[in-house]
């Protein structure tokens, strides 16, 4: 009976059997979660680089990802790697980049994720 009254889940039911400190546990957990969420959120918004960090004024794909795209395009277009060069790149999502390639004089576009997996290679 207590289990049913206390709630539908086991945790609430067992708290109903416990003392006053345990009864406040859900509120503590809730407050903790809220603080954590607030902390994470603020951390993202105000995350400051350490010291005198540098960056490029325009975000491009890391060089290794650009070259992985070129390697993938070499397979797709059956072209020698010496004829394929990344021309430009930009972030295309939270964890991916678009890389424009010169493939033996033709343009192609590769989308690659941050893990280095080429998602698509298509004519540009």
């Amino acid at each position: 009976m207590k289990r049913k009254r206390g709630g539908e889940n086991g945790m609430t039911a067992s708290i109903a059997k416990a003392g006053p400190i345990a009864k406040s546990a859900p509120w503590i957990a809730l407050a903790g979660t809220a603080l954590l969420a607030l902390g994470c959120s603020q951390g993202t918004e105000t995350a400051a680089p350490q010291g005198m960090a540098v960056r490029s004024a325009v975000e491009t794909a890391p060089a290794d990802l650009q070259l992985l795209c070129a390697a993938e395009a070499a397979k797709v277009y059956e072209a020698p790697s010496e004829k394929i060069l990344p021309l430009s790149s930009q972030r295309s999502g939270t964890a991916s980049y678009d890389v424009e390639l010169d493939v033996a004089g033709k343009r192609a576009r590769c989308t690659i994720d941050e893990s280095g997996t080429a998602i698509t290679v298509v004519d540009a």
Binding site: A48, P49, G51, M52, A53, V54, R55, S56, A57, V58, T60
Partner: peptide, 24 residues
């Protein structure tokens, strides 16, 4: 594409030009 440097005092990214680079 130019380089930018973070200024912790102003909390702004600033241009890293030759004058800034020499000063740094």
């Amino acid at each position: 594409i130019n380089t930018q440097i973070y200024n912790p005092e102003t909390r702004q990214w600033e241009q890293y030009d030759p004058n800034r680079a020499i000063r740094y």
